[in-house]
Amino acid sequence: MEETKLLLDDVLSPAEIERYRAVYEKAKEANRVTDENKFSFAYCLVRSKAKSDIHAGLSLLRELYDGTKSDEIKRDYIYYLAFGNARLGEFEVALKFLDAILHLEPGNHQAKKLKDEVTRRMDRDGYVGMGIAAGAGALLIGGVGGLLFAGGLTAAAIALLKK
């Protein structure tokens, strides 16, 4: 869990973020944006100290999620959506994403570790909404579970997760 804590607290320097931004913008200008360079930039942004960068990274991750049909890749994007939301302190949203992954993959250690760290931070911060999140999460998982099993990790599932 210590590595997850360190990762959540790791912040990229503004210079590093600008380097990734320049590469992404150059690819965008040349109409050569790939999912790989878009993801690299999004992952960089969610590790920024600036909330506006984190929000921009989450937006790119949602675009990537919506643009892929691969359930495995969708799961990765959901993980990083959880990660970015945890970085913003949006713990309830992060837990919804993580619970969706763990519903399908109960043995996913990466999602378990992040969920444990998010829960620890909620407890540390005296997060009142935790009980609400747990109850809503139980109801949500029942509804999302049908969507996830019926059609993979669909855009409808992620829309439900964001509510």
Rank of each mutant, 00 (worst) to 15 (best):
V46A: 02
K74R: 10
E92L: 15
R32M: 15
A100Y: 02
R32Q: 15
E3I: 07
L58E: 03
D116C: 04
A156P: 04
G146E: 15
D53E: 12
V144A: 11
Y77G: 00
K96H: 13
K49Q: 10
E92S: 08
E36Y: 10
G126R: 07
K113C: 13
R62E: 08
I73H: 01
Y43E: 08
T154R: 05
A150R: 14
V33N: 06
L45P: 00
V144R: 06
E105F: 14
V144T: 13
D116E: 14
L88K: 10
H55R: 11
I73T: 05
T119E: 06
K69N: 07
R47D: 00
E63N: 09
V118W: 01
E117W: 00
F91Q: 07
K115A: 09
L161R: 01
A22W: 08
A15C: 12
T154C: 04
V128A: 12
K115T: 05
Q110T: 05
D53G: 04
R120K: 14
K113S: 13
L114N: 01
S59M: 12
E90T: 11
L7F: 02
K28W: 09
K113G: 14
L160P: 00
L161G: 01
F83N: 00
G151F: 14
R124Q: 09
E36I: 10
E29N: 15
A156F: 13
G126L: 09
K69P: 00
D123L: 13
F149P: 05
A156S: 08
H55D: 11
K112W: 07
K26N: 14
R32Y: 13
H109R: 12
Y20L: 11
R75S: 01
D99W: 04
A86K: 04
L160V: 15
A111P: 00
Y65Q: 02
A111M: 03
N37G: 08
L7A: 08
Y79T: 02
D10N: 13
A94E: 06
